[in-house]
Write a protein that binds this DNA or RNA. Structure first.
Length: 260
DNA sequence: ATGGTTGTGTTACAA
């Protein structure tokens, strides 16, 4: 089996204690990180490697930055989402590891909407759609995981009315996300847990965590070959309740070694 | 109470 998790850590430097303790207790095989906020050479990899993980990093100073940790060798690393050579934001890294291809995705937030940032978000989602369509042609198991900055339905928002005009919930955002899923992908958490909530992100402000005012915006999208191997999925709330937490908490799934 | 917090890095911006 392969346990794959995604976690927006909001600064790898600040979050190292939280990450190391969670790797120890959850023991994932593959971890997709977002918002590491460091350049490649500054990634604090030694303690992670000492726990038995290999690393692939696509970093950026101050903003963004994504990485893949894996207990298996990491091969065929690709950085940057295809479709716009002028895009310098570090929001996509993909690689093959173990018996699955994985990508760590930090999809643009897009607020305020409408505006230039929302236009960039929609263009980025369009590029992701075409890249996912390309990957589908390979007929292999892959997992596109990350902070999508998308609440796919009202079941993924604590207060749908209050968030209706936010870039994470706007109809055009949801339509683009649905188009990607409709290529034939499976949302690993929702496939096994259809009831409204729970969430993967809570704002730092206004006691959002204590009141469970959250959003489900971190997703693992599985190709058909990966979905055939899906046995479990979940959201691990514990890291969000600890000292100096990220505003996100890990979302994970387990794939068996063989399909049905 | 038109608020609140965190991170980066320089006092503004992104989330």
């Amino acid at each position: 089996m392969t346990k794959i998790a995604t976690w927006n850590v909001n600064s790898i430097r600040v979050r190292m204690p939280r990450l190391l303790e969670w790797l120890g207790e959850a023991n994932p095989d593959v971890v997709l990180l977002q918002e590491i906020k460091v350049v490649d050479d500054a990634f604090p990899g030694e303690d992670i490697e000492s726990l038995g993980y290999n690393l692939a990093v696509h970093g950026q100073k101050t903003y963004n930055g994504v990485a893949i940790l894996s207990k298996h060798p990491i091969e065929d690393v690709q950085t940057g989402l295809p479709g716009d050579d002028t895009d310098e934001q570090a929001r996509y890294i993909e690689a093959f590891t173990g018996n699955v291809r994985v990508a760590s995705i930090y999809l643009p937030n897009g607020n305020p909407a409408p505006g230039e940032k929302y236009d960039y978000k929609l263009r980025w989602m369009e590029r992701l759609y075409y890249h996912a369509a390309d990957l589908m042609n390979n007929d292999e198991a892959f997992v596109l995981g990350g902070d999508y900055n998308v609440c796919p339905t009202d079941a993924d928002v604590y207060n749908p009315e209050g968030w209706a005009d936010d870039a994470l919930c706007l109809p055009e955002t949801r339509n683009k996300f649905r188009a990607i899923v409709n290529l034939g992908l499976t949302n690993a958490f929702r496939a096994l847990h259809p009831d409204p909530g729970p969430y993967s992100y809570w704002d730092y402000t206004a006691g959002a965590w204590q009141k469970d005012f959250g959003l489900l915006i971190d997703h693992l999208l599985l190709s058909p070959q990966a979905a055939d191997r899906l046995t479990e999925s979940g959201i691990d709330r514990k890291p969000r309740g600890r000292e100096k937490p990220s505003d996100h908490t890990p979302v994970w799934c387990v794939l068996s070694d063989e399909g049905h």
